Simulated assay, not measured.
Amino acid sequence: MSVPGTPLLDFSQWGFLSTPLTELLELLGARIVEIPIDDEHFHGGCSERGDSLVVVLPERMSALEKDLSARGLLAFWFDVDTSNWPTGATFSNIADLERAA
């Protein structure tokens, strides 16, 4: 048996942007849940649920918005630098926002 010479996932911004989304979700033990929500300020979030990571996205988003938001949320969750994410989105930890309020 041989061990792969490269990691299964590149934990860089490029790794999160270039890995096919279904593969990224599988490698990270994550799943996407879409919710109906009227709040246009909500663009998604991540939460641990048992042994999996749940990416919550609004149903109203287009497929491209969902893809890029899910990737950005996952990258942020795993401490990848998202400061120059291609969509211009800013990702925040809700606990940090609550402390600032």
Rank of each mutant, 00 (worst) to 15 (best):
L28D: 11
S62Q: 13
T87K: 04
W77A: 06
T87R: 07
V80N: 02
M1T: 07
E34T: 14
E48M: 15
F16Y: 14
E26V: 01
S18L: 11
W85N: 05
T90L: 14
I94Q: 12
G50V: 07
E65K: 15
S69R: 04
A63W: 01
S62Y: 06
F78G: 00
P86Q: 09
E40A: 12
R31Y: 12
E98R: 15
I37A: 01
S92D: 06
F11Q: 03
G29V: 02
F16R: 11
S12C: 11
W77Y: 11
F11H: 10
V80T: 06
A63L: 14
T82S: 04
P4C: 01
P4Q: 07
S47A: 12
F91Y: 15
A95W: 11
V54T: 08
R71S: 01
P36V: 11
D51K: 08
S12Q: 05
A101E: 13
E26A: 09
E59N: 12
S47W: 04
L17W: 01
V55P: 00
A100F: 05
C46M: 06
S83Y: 08
K66C: 14
R49H: 15
L74D: 03
V33N: 11
F11W: 13
F16L: 13
F91M: 04
M1Q: 03
E59G: 05
D39P: 01
I37F: 00
I32M: 09
L8R: 13
P4T: 08
W77C: 13
L21H: 08
A30P: 01
G72D: 05
S2L: 12
A75V: 13
W85P: 06
S2M: 05
G44K: 00
S2G: 06
E40G: 02
P7I: 08
L68T: 05
G72S: 08
M61W: 13
D81F: 02
L73C: 02
P58K: 00
T82G: 08
S52R: 14
N93L: 08
N84A: 12
G44A: 08
F78K: 07
T87H: 00
E48W: 13
L8I: 06
E40I: 08
A63N: 02
M1L: 13
E59I: 08
L74W: 07
D39A: 08
F42E: 05
E48N: 11
L74V: 03
Q13G: 14
A63I: 04
L21K: 00
F78W: 15
A101I: 08
P20K: 04
V3K: 07
V33Y: 03
E48L: 05
V56Q: 10
V55N: 01
S47N: 09
D96L: 11
V55I: 15
F16I: 11
D79N: 08
A100T: 03
L25N: 03
D67T: 07
P86F: 10
S62A: 13
V33C: 13
D96N: 15
G44W: 00
G15Y: 08
R71Q: 12
F78A: 06
E65I: 05
E34W: 09
L53R: 05
P58A: 00
L53K: 01
F76P: 00
V80L: 07
I35T: 10
D51Y: 10
M1C: 04
V33L: 12
P86H: 13
F42Y: 09
I94M: 11
L25C: 04
E23P: 02
D79L: 10
G15A: 06
I32S: 09
